[in-house]
């Protein structure tokens, strides 16, 4: 075996407490929303149970769904603020493919994910590929919030006006709300996999970074 080269890593602080609070609020509310949402969409056979012991099952799960939805929207508001006023790594300019530097980074991380190169894309913040996906999910979350609000508060005049203008009818909003819910399940699977996979491939410590806010970067790597 060839002698392993020693690499020095430095610890860099990337994610502010606000971003971490956003991340975990979003993650937990998504989990609750997905699970209760599946029940609300197609309740499994609970009739016998509900006859045996009345427990207000649908009402309770809907209550959890709506409560989680408020946390979800609060988290979105925090992320929206951070997109413009967060630290350098939290702003949209750092991780959207809107300039040459970011576009190049996008292709490099795509190649890395496709096993076409062994070069890990060292970035202080999100890689541009991840950032793009997060942004798309952010947009999906905004649509989820709007459709959800429309379905929950059809009697509030401005909400129903907005709902009809955007979706035409509550049924259409419900359809979009349901279709996009699969995007979140899809995202959770891929996000967890990529996070763990990255931890294997590069000692960035991004999983603990989601708690501590710090990552590790090779001492000699400088972001271009």
């Amino acid at each position: 075996m060839a002698k392993k080269k020693e690499i020095l890593y430095r610890r860099v602080f990337v994610w502010s407490w606000a971003l971490r609070i956003f991340h975990w609020t979003f993650a937990l509310s998504c989990a609750v929303l997905i699970l209760t949402g599946i029940y609300i969409h197609y309740p499994p056979i609970t009739t016998k149970w509900a006859e045996f012991k009345p427990q207000y099952l649908m009402g309770t799960l809907r209550y959890y769904h709506f409560t989680a939805a408020y946390f979800f929207m609060a988290a979105l508001a925090v992320r929206l603020y951070l997109l413009f006023f967060g630290n350098r790594y939290e702003r949209f300019t750092d991780f959207l493919p809107i300039n040459r530097r970011n576009l190049r980074s996008f292709w490099r991380s795509l190649k890395f994910y496709l096993y076409l190169t062994d070069e890990h894309e060292w970035r202080m913040g999100h890689t541009v590929l991840a950032g793009t996906i997060y942004f798309l999910l952010f947009l999906a979350a905004v649509v989820m919030s709007i459709t959800g609000l429309y379905l929950l508060y059809p009697d509030i005049s401005w909400i129903s006006k907005m709902g009809v203008a955007l979706f035409g009818s509550a049924q259409m909003a419900r359809f979009i709300h349901y279709i996009l819910h699969w995007c979140f399940i899809f995202f959770v699977i891929v996000h967890l996999y990529i996070a763990i996979w990255n931890d294997f491939k590069a000692p960035e410590a991004i999983i603990s970074g989601a708690f501590s806010g710090s990552k590790f970067m090779p001492a000699d790597v400088k972001e271009d």
Partner: peptide, 9 residues
């Protein structure tokens, strides 16, 4: 019945 989770299958 909806709130209780009692549904026609």
């Amino acid at each position: 019945h909806f709130d209780e989770g009692r549904f026609v299958e």
